[in-house]
Computed example of a mutant assay.
Amino acid sequence: MTACACCGAEVDEDGAIDLDLGLPPLAGGVERLAGGDVLLGAESAYVRCVLPVELTGDLELWFSAWMRVTAEDARRAAASWGEESLRLTGTFAHDIKPWDGLDGAEVVAEVVEAGSPPDFVVHPLLGRTWDRDHVLSAFPVELPISIRQELRGPWSVERTSGLTPHLAPDGLRFAGPGRTVFLDTRKAPGVSARCVLELALAGAPSVPADQKHLVENGAELRHALWLTTIRHEFYGHVARFGELLIVTCLYDDPADDAWARHVLNSVRYGA
């Protein structure tokens, strides 16, 4: 981990992530072979393979995914599972966001390392490096690293490691042990940034001067206030002409004040 330059919070930057895409569509009785890595049904057959996808930032994304094969190839895979001679052709059995049109794509897999499942060696996602934030923003799961999460419109914010995103009525929520972030985007067409912020702060609690701050940077105003109760509350606002993003952080550990400031400081508008 490294320390964030803006607030001192620890930030993790790279690593590898394993994601399981779940079982393919199955109908009727299914025979499970090779320890469940080969599925043989009356109308379809599948083999579980590994799809290694390269992302920016020295990150690799490893999908546990299935390919459709013939019943004959399924039996052959089960009989020679883990042997380096095993090579299979078939079609991909998943759709994965943010990509389109992957289900049904022609693919090839082979055992690269003896004793391991086959790796996809021909697949539409192989052969290039994908933007990690754009890709991982599409997965509503807890991640072991921090990413830049895309929000509605041109906004984005850092989703720190260990937080799971959930759709909320007015925006997005990240939640994890001892930490929760609520994100709400609003529009006020034709209203200046200062007026947008004043409207957002109407009815806000009064706090001491050392529990709030306001920073003006060109067309943007960033404001925050925080409360110290049994659970710590941090309310941040990023106001622009006709636009507002509200960042609410709730956390148990007072040391996470730096983390909350980091989340607010990570907000970006536009590319």
Rank of each mutant, 00 (worst) to 15 (best):
W259S: 11
E83Y: 13
G28D: 03
L136Y: 14
D257Q: 13
R128P: 02
E158G: 11
E10R: 13
P169I: 09
G190V: 10
E31I: 01
T160I: 15
V50K: 11
D14W: 02
A77F: 01
D20F: 09
V215F: 07
C6V: 11
H262Y: 15
F120A: 03
R152G: 15
G28H: 03
A258P: 03
L21D: 01
H123W: 14
R222F: 07
L183R: 06
W259G: 06
W99T: 02
E243A: 12
V196W: 11
T185V: 11
P169K: 04
V30L: 10
E54G: 09
R194G: 07
G35E: 06
T70Q: 03
A168T: 15
E43S: 05
A224L: 11
D103G: 10
T70L: 03
G242M: 10
S146V: 02
C4Q: 08
S80F: 01
S116C: 04
G171C: 09
G127C: 04
V111W: 00
L183K: 08
T164F: 04
E72V: 00
V215Q: 07
E60T: 15
D73G: 01
W81H: 03
R76G: 04
C49V: 15
R68K: 13
N265W: 13
L151S: 13
L183T: 13
H166I: 05
C6P: 02
L125Y: 04
E84M: 06
P208K: 09
L40Q: 01
G35W: 00
K212L: 14
L225I: 07
E110K: 13
L88Q: 00
R261T: 05
A202H: 06
L264P: 05
V263S: 06
S266N: 06
A79M: 02
S146F: 00
R261L: 12
T56Y: 02
A65E: 10
R222G: 05
V157H: 02
A16P: 03
E233K: 03
L23H: 10
T228F: 09
V238R: 02
I230P: 12
E72L: 00
A224M: 04
V69Q: 08
T91A: 12
E158M: 10
